[in-house]
Amino acid sequence: MIRLPAPGRRVVVRYLLPDGRATDALGELLSVSPDEVVVDGKRGVERIAVDAIVAAKEVPPPAAPRQPRSR
């Protein structure tokens, strides 16, 4: 059983695609149900079957954008 934080937290979820390759969903955890996890990230809202999840964890907020260097 994968343990996930409460919705509203930033997470990374590694899951298996139908062809067996693994991929990650990184973003805000919108909801968790017995069958599905929903993550809102850069690729949009991703609905992930719980059976496909390999690993998941809470991650810190993204770093602030860097300022351009002055010459």
Rank of each mutant, 00 (worst) to 15 (best):
A25S: 12
K42S: 08
V50E: 03
K57E: 13
P68D: 04
K57A: 12
A49D: 14
M1S: 12
I53Q: 05
R21F: 02
V11M: 10
I48Y: 10
G27Q: 04
R14H: 11
V45K: 11
A6H: 04
E46S: 14
P68L: 13
S33D: 07
S33M: 09
P60M: 10
A49C: 02
D24Y: 14
V13Q: 08
G27H: 06
K57H: 13
T23Y: 06
V59D: 05
L26E: 08
R43F: 03
V39E: 02
A22F: 07
P61W: 12
R21L: 08
T23I: 12
P5N: 07
S33K: 06
A56G: 15
P65Q: 07
K42I: 03
Y15D: 04
K57C: 07
A52T: 14
G41T: 06
M1H: 12
P7F: 02
D19H: 06
V12C: 04
P68W: 11
P34G: 00
M1L: 11
L26I: 15
L17Q: 13
A64R: 15
V32M: 04
V50G: 01
G41M: 03
V11W: 13
A22S: 15
E58H: 02
V12Q: 12
E36W: 11
K57P: 00
M1E: 05
D51F: 09
P68C: 08
G8N: 01
R3T: 13
G41S: 02
P68Q: 09
P18F: 04
V38H: 01
R69L: 15
V39A: 02
K57T: 02
A22L: 10
I2P: 15
D51H: 10
D24V: 13
G8R: 05
R21I: 01
S31F: 05
V45L: 13
R66L: 15
R47H: 14
V13L: 06
I48A: 07
A6P: 00
G44R: 08
A6V: 07
L30K: 14
E58C: 00
A6C: 00
V39N: 03
P61M: 08
P34H: 04
M1K: 10
G20S: 03
V45G: 00
E46N: 11
D19G: 01
A56F: 10
R14T: 15
V39G: 01
G8E: 01
I48C: 07
V12L: 06
V37I: 15
I48N: 09
G8L: 03
K57S: 11
V54R: 15
E58K: 09
A25K: 02
L16M: 10
G27T: 06
P68E: 10
